[in-house]
Protein backbone atom coordinates (compact mmCIF):
# COMPACT_ATOMS: atom_id res chain seq x y z
CA UNK A 1 0.00 0.00 0.00
CA UNK A 2 1.41 3.41 -1.00
CA UNK A 3 1.70 6.41 1.29
CA UNK A 4 -1.29 8.16 -0.32
CA UNK A 5 -3.51 5.09 0.09
CA UNK A 6 -2.36 4.65 3.68
CA UNK A 7 -3.09 8.30 4.37
CA UNK A 8 -6.57 7.92 2.85
CA UNK A 9 -7.22 4.86 5.02
CA UNK A 10 -5.97 6.71 8.09
CA UNK A 11 -8.26 9.67 7.38
CA UNK A 12 -11.24 7.34 6.93
CA UNK A 13 -10.50 5.57 10.22
CA UNK A 14 -9.96 8.92 11.93
CA UNK A 15 -13.33 10.21 10.67
CA UNK A 16 -15.07 6.99 11.76
CA UNK A 17 -13.57 7.25 15.22
CA UNK A 18 -14.68 10.91 15.49
CA UNK A 19 -18.20 9.81 14.50
CA UNK A 20 -18.21 7.05 17.15
CA UNK A 21 -16.88 9.43 19.81
CA UNK A 22 -19.63 11.90 18.91
CA UNK A 23 -22.32 9.21 19.15
CA UNK A 24 -20.85 7.99 22.39
CA UNK A 25 -20.88 11.53 23.79
CA UNK A 26 -24.55 11.93 22.83
CA UNK A 27 -25.45 8.56 24.39
CA UNK A 28 -23.63 9.42 27.62
CA UNK A 29 -25.58 12.69 27.72
CA UNK A 30 -28.86 10.80 27.17
CA UNK A 31 -27.83 8.42 29.93
CA UNK A 32 -27.13 11.28 32.29
CA UNK A 33 -30.08 13.53 31.46
CA UNK A 34 -32.79 11.00 30.58
CA UNK A 35 -31.62 8.38 33.10
CA UNK A 36 -31.43 5.69 30.38
CA UNK A 37 -29.06 2.98 31.62
CA UNK A 38 -28.98 1.34 28.18
CA UNK A 39 -27.81 4.56 26.56
CA UNK A 40 -24.85 4.56 28.97
CA UNK A 41 -24.04 0.96 28.06
CA UNK A 42 -24.16 1.76 24.33
CA UNK A 43 -22.08 4.88 24.90
CA UNK A 44 -19.48 2.73 26.60
CA UNK A 45 -19.47 0.19 23.72
CA UNK A 46 -19.20 2.91 21.11
CA UNK A 47 -16.31 4.71 22.74
CA UNK A 48 -14.43 1.42 22.93
CA UNK A 49 -15.21 0.78 19.24
CA UNK A 50 -14.09 4.31 18.36
CA UNK A 51 -10.93 3.79 20.40
CA UNK A 52 -10.09 0.63 18.47
CA UNK A 53 -10.55 2.37 15.12
CA UNK A 54 -8.56 5.35 16.42
CA UNK A 55 -5.73 3.00 17.47
CA UNK A 56 -5.69 1.40 14.01
CA UNK A 57 -5.66 4.89 12.43
CA UNK A 58 -2.58 5.84 14.48
CA UNK A 59 -0.96 2.52 13.56
CA UNK A 60 -1.61 3.08 9.84
CA UNK A 61 -0.08 6.57 10.05
CA UNK A 62 2.90 5.18 11.96
CA UNK A 63 3.58 2.66 9.18
CA UNK A 64 2.92 5.18 6.37
CA UNK A 65 5.20 7.83 7.93
CA UNK A 66 7.90 5.32 8.87
CA UNK A 67 8.17 6.98 12.27
CA UNK A 68 6.14 7.48 15.43
CA UNK A 69 3.29 9.83 14.48
CA UNK A 70 3.87 12.37 17.26
CA UNK A 71 5.65 15.24 15.60
CA UNK A 72 3.18 17.90 14.48
CA UNK A 73 0.00 19.57 15.71
CA UNK A 74 -2.34 17.07 14.01
CA UNK A 75 -0.41 14.01 15.14
CA UNK A 76 -0.17 15.17 18.73
CA UNK A 77 -3.82 16.31 18.85
CA UNK A 78 -5.13 12.95 17.65
CA UNK A 79 -2.75 11.13 20.04
CA UNK A 80 -3.82 13.47 22.87
CA UNK A 81 -7.49 12.56 22.30
CA UNK A 82 -6.46 8.88 22.09
CA UNK A 83 -4.71 9.27 25.48
CA UNK A 84 -7.82 10.81 27.04
CA UNK A 85 -10.03 8.00 25.73
CA UNK A 86 -7.53 5.33 26.86
CA UNK A 87 -7.37 6.79 30.38
CA UNK A 88 -11.15 7.19 30.44
CA UNK A 89 -11.70 3.53 29.48
CA UNK A 90 -9.23 2.40 32.17
CA UNK A 91 -10.88 4.57 34.82
CA UNK A 92 -14.39 3.56 33.74
CA UNK A 93 -13.47 -0.11 34.05
CA UNK A 94 -11.69 0.45 37.37
CA UNK A 95 -14.32 2.61 39.03
CA UNK A 96 -17.47 1.63 37.07
CA UNK A 97 -19.06 5.08 36.92
CA UNK A 98 -20.69 5.68 33.55
CA UNK A 99 -21.50 9.29 34.40
CA UNK A 100 -17.81 10.04 33.89
CA UNK A 101 -18.43 9.58 30.18
CA UNK A 102 -20.83 12.52 30.14
CA UNK A 103 -18.03 14.82 31.27
CA UNK A 104 -14.94 13.27 29.70
CA UNK A 105 -16.15 12.41 26.17
CA UNK A 106 -16.82 16.08 25.27
CA UNK A 107 -13.19 16.90 26.15
CA UNK A 108 -11.91 14.06 23.94
CA UNK A 109 -14.32 15.06 21.16
CA UNK A 110 -13.17 18.70 21.25
CA UNK A 111 -9.51 17.66 20.98
CA UNK A 112 -10.43 15.39 18.05
CA UNK A 113 -12.22 18.36 16.48
CA UNK A 114 -9.04 20.42 16.86
CA UNK A 115 -7.06 17.59 15.26
CA UNK A 116 -9.51 17.47 12.35
CA UNK A 117 -8.77 21.13 11.59
CA UNK A 118 -4.99 20.56 11.30
CA UNK A 119 -3.04 19.61 8.19
CA UNK A 120 -2.75 15.82 7.92
CA UNK A 121 0.22 15.87 5.55
CA UNK A 122 3.10 13.56 6.37
CA UNK A 123 6.33 15.54 6.23
CA UNK A 124 9.88 14.34 6.86
CA UNK A 125 11.33 15.27 10.22
CA UNK A 126 13.76 18.12 10.69
CA UNK A 127 17.12 16.95 12.12
CA UNK A 128 16.39 18.02 15.70
CA UNK A 129 13.29 15.79 15.77
CA UNK A 130 15.15 12.71 14.54
CA UNK A 131 15.67 11.26 17.99
CA UNK A 132 14.35 8.27 19.91
CA UNK A 133 13.67 10.70 22.73
CA UNK A 134 10.87 12.18 20.60
CA UNK A 135 8.79 8.99 20.97
CA UNK A 136 9.42 8.75 24.71
CA UNK A 137 8.97 12.46 25.41
CA UNK A 138 5.78 12.92 23.40
CA UNK A 139 4.44 9.41 24.13
CA UNK A 140 4.55 10.10 27.87
CA UNK A 141 2.87 13.47 27.21
CA UNK A 142 -0.04 11.65 25.53
CA UNK A 143 -0.68 9.57 28.67
CA UNK A 144 -0.09 12.51 31.01
CA UNK A 145 -2.41 14.88 29.16
CA UNK A 146 -4.97 12.10 28.72
CA UNK A 147 -5.05 11.44 32.46
CA UNK A 148 -5.34 15.17 33.21
CA UNK A 149 -8.25 15.34 30.73
CA UNK A 150 -10.06 12.61 32.65
CA UNK A 151 -9.25 14.34 35.96
CA UNK A 152 -10.65 17.64 34.65
CA UNK A 153 -13.89 15.93 33.59
CA UNK A 154 -14.24 14.24 36.99
CA UNK A 155 -13.42 17.49 38.81
CA UNK A 156 -16.19 19.22 36.86
CA UNK A 157 -18.47 16.43 38.10
CA UNK A 158 -17.23 17.17 41.60
CA UNK A 159 -18.00 20.87 41.30
CA UNK A 160 -21.45 20.09 39.91
CA UNK A 161 -22.14 17.55 42.65
CA UNK A 162 -20.95 20.06 45.23
CA UNK A 163 -22.96 22.96 43.79
CA UNK A 164 -26.20 21.01 43.52
CA UNK A 165 -25.73 18.76 46.50
CA UNK A 166 -29.43 18.85 47.36
CA UNK A 167 -30.66 17.95 43.89
CA UNK A 168 -32.07 14.41 43.88
CA UNK A 169 -31.11 14.08 40.21
CA UNK A 170 -27.47 14.95 40.83
CA UNK A 171 -27.42 12.76 43.92
CA UNK A 172 -28.72 9.81 41.95
CA UNK A 173 -26.52 10.15 38.88
CA UNK A 174 -23.22 11.35 40.22
CA UNK A 175 -20.98 9.42 42.59
CA UNK A 176 -20.52 10.88 46.06
CA UNK A 177 -17.94 13.63 46.56
CA UNK A 178 -15.32 11.42 48.20
CA UNK A 179 -15.46 8.96 45.30
CA UNK A 180 -15.15 11.75 42.73
CA UNK A 181 -12.24 13.19 44.68
CA UNK A 182 -10.58 9.77 44.75
CA UNK A 183 -11.01 9.22 40.98
CA UNK A 184 -9.72 12.70 40.22
CA UNK A 185 -6.77 12.15 42.55
CA UNK A 186 -5.86 8.82 40.94
CA UNK A 187 -6.07 10.36 37.45
CA UNK A 188 -3.91 13.32 38.52
CA UNK A 189 -1.41 11.00 40.21
CA UNK A 190 -1.06 9.11 36.92
CA UNK A 191 -0.86 12.33 34.91
CA UNK A 192 1.65 13.88 37.31
CA UNK A 193 3.94 10.87 37.18
CA UNK A 194 3.89 10.93 33.38
CA UNK A 195 4.24 14.74 33.24
CA UNK A 196 7.39 14.41 35.33
CA UNK A 197 8.63 11.83 32.82
CA UNK A 198 7.74 14.26 30.00
CA UNK A 199 9.79 17.03 31.58
CA UNK A 200 12.78 14.84 32.51
CA UNK A 201 12.94 13.06 29.12
CA UNK A 202 12.48 16.42 27.39
CA UNK A 203 15.39 17.82 29.39
CA UNK A 204 17.63 14.89 28.43
CA UNK A 205 16.68 15.33 24.77
CA UNK A 206 17.13 19.11 24.92
CA UNK A 207 20.64 18.65 26.30
CA UNK A 208 21.50 16.53 23.24
CA UNK A 209 19.75 18.65 20.65
CA UNK A 210 19.83 22.23 21.95
CA UNK A 211 22.82 22.19 24.31
CA UNK A 212 20.77 23.09 27.39
CA UNK A 213 18.60 20.71 29.40
CA UNK A 214 16.60 23.67 30.60
CA UNK A 215 16.56 26.99 28.76
CA UNK A 216 13.30 28.57 29.98
CA UNK A 217 11.76 28.16 26.55
CA UNK A 218 8.01 29.08 26.82
CA UNK A 219 6.97 25.44 26.28
CA UNK A 220 9.31 24.27 29.03
CA UNK A 221 8.19 27.06 31.33
CA UNK A 222 4.50 26.32 30.78
CA UNK A 223 5.12 22.61 31.39
CA UNK A 224 6.74 23.62 34.67
CA UNK A 225 3.79 25.87 35.52
CA UNK A 226 1.42 22.94 34.82
CA UNK A 227 3.60 20.69 36.99
CA UNK A 228 3.50 23.28 39.79
CA UNK A 229 -0.32 23.56 39.62
CA UNK A 230 -0.70 19.79 39.98
CA UNK A 231 2.03 19.64 42.66
CA UNK A 232 0.07 22.22 44.64
CA UNK A 233 -3.11 20.17 44.07
CA UNK A 234 -1.40 17.07 45.47
CA UNK A 235 -0.17 18.94 48.54
CA UNK A 236 -3.41 20.87 49.06
CA UNK A 237 -5.34 17.62 49.11
CA UNK A 238 -3.65 16.66 52.38
CA UNK A 239 -3.95 20.12 53.97
CA UNK A 240 -6.75 21.13 56.30
CA UNK A 241 -9.24 23.50 54.72
CA UNK A 242 -8.05 22.89 51.16
CA UNK A 243 -9.70 19.62 50.27
CA UNK A 244 -12.78 19.38 48.13
CA UNK A 245 -13.92 22.28 46.02
CA UNK A 246 -10.60 24.15 46.03
CA UNK A 247 -8.59 21.14 44.86
CA UNK A 248 -11.23 20.36 42.21
CA UNK A 249 -10.76 23.92 40.93
CA UNK A 250 -7.00 23.38 40.87
CA UNK A 251 -7.55 20.28 38.75
CA UNK A 252 -9.58 22.28 36.21
CA UNK A 253 -7.04 25.13 36.20
CA UNK A 254 -4.29 22.54 35.70
CA UNK A 255 -6.02 21.20 32.60
CA UNK A 256 -6.44 24.73 31.22
CA UNK A 257 -2.65 25.06 31.65
CA UNK A 258 -2.21 21.73 29.82
CA UNK A 259 -4.26 23.04 26.90
CA UNK A 260 -2.37 26.34 26.88
CA UNK A 261 0.98 24.52 26.98
CA UNK A 262 -0.08 22.45 23.99
CA UNK A 263 -2.05 24.90 21.84
CA UNK A 264 -1.44 28.39 23.26
CA UNK A 265 2.35 28.23 23.44
CA UNK A 266 2.64 26.81 19.91
CA UNK A 267 0.42 29.48 18.41
CA UNK A 268 0.89 32.55 20.61
CA UNK A 269 4.42 32.47 22.00
CA UNK A 270 7.78 32.18 20.22
CA UNK A 271 9.37 28.86 21.15
CA UNK A 272 11.92 26.38 19.86
CA UNK A 273 9.04 23.92 20.13
CA UNK A 274 7.33 25.74 17.28
CA UNK A 275 10.23 24.60 15.06
CA UNK A 276 10.20 27.81 13.10
CA UNK A 277 13.62 29.45 13.27
CA UNK A 278 16.39 28.50 15.60
CA UNK A 279 19.16 30.78 14.49
CA UNK A 280 19.82 33.84 12.44
CA UNK A 281 21.06 31.48 9.77
CA UNK A 282 19.05 28.98 7.82
CA UNK A 283 18.43 25.87 9.89
Amino acid sequence: MGVDQSLQLEITLFNLSIALYLLSMVLYLVFFIAKKERAGDFGSYLIKGGFMLHTVALGVRWVAAGRVPLSNQYEFATAFAWGIVLCFIIFEIKFSYKAMGTFVTPIAFLIMGYAAMQSKDIRPLMPALQSNWLSIHVGTAVISYGAFGVAAGVSLMYLLRNQFSNSPFVKKHLPDLSTLDLISYRAIALGFFFLTLVIVTGAIWAEQAWARYWSWDPKETWSLITWIIYAVYLHARIMRGWQGKKTALFSVIGFICVLFTYIGVNTLLPSIHSYALLLPFEW
Binding site: W216, I228, M239
Partner: peptide, 24 residues
Protein backbone atom coordinates in the same frame (compact mmCIF):
# COMPACT_ATOMS: atom_id res chain seq x y z
CA UNK B 1 6.29 24.31 56.40
CA UNK B 2 4.40 22.75 53.54
CA UNK B 3 2.25 25.86 53.23
CA UNK B 4 5.31 28.05 52.69
CA UNK B 5 6.67 25.63 50.09
CA UNK B 6 3.36 25.64 48.24
CA UNK B 7 3.11 29.43 48.29
CA UNK B 8 6.70 29.69 46.96
CA UNK B 9 5.93 27.19 44.20
CA UNK B 10 2.83 29.14 43.20
CA UNK B 11 4.72 32.47 43.20
CA UNK B 12 7.52 30.96 41.09
CA UNK B 13 4.92 29.52 38.69
CA UNK B 14 2.98 32.78 38.32
CA UNK B 15 6.09 34.97 37.95
CA UNK B 16 7.57 32.57 35.39
CA UNK B 17 4.71 33.55 33.08
CA UNK B 18 6.26 37.02 32.69
CA UNK B 19 9.28 35.49 30.99
CA UNK B 20 7.09 33.68 28.46
CA UNK B 21 5.20 36.84 27.47
CA UNK B 22 7.89 39.51 27.62
CA UNK B 23 10.81 39.03 25.17
CA UNK B 24 13.83 37.96 27.20
Amino acid sequence: SMKFGMVLLLIIGVLSIIGTILPQ
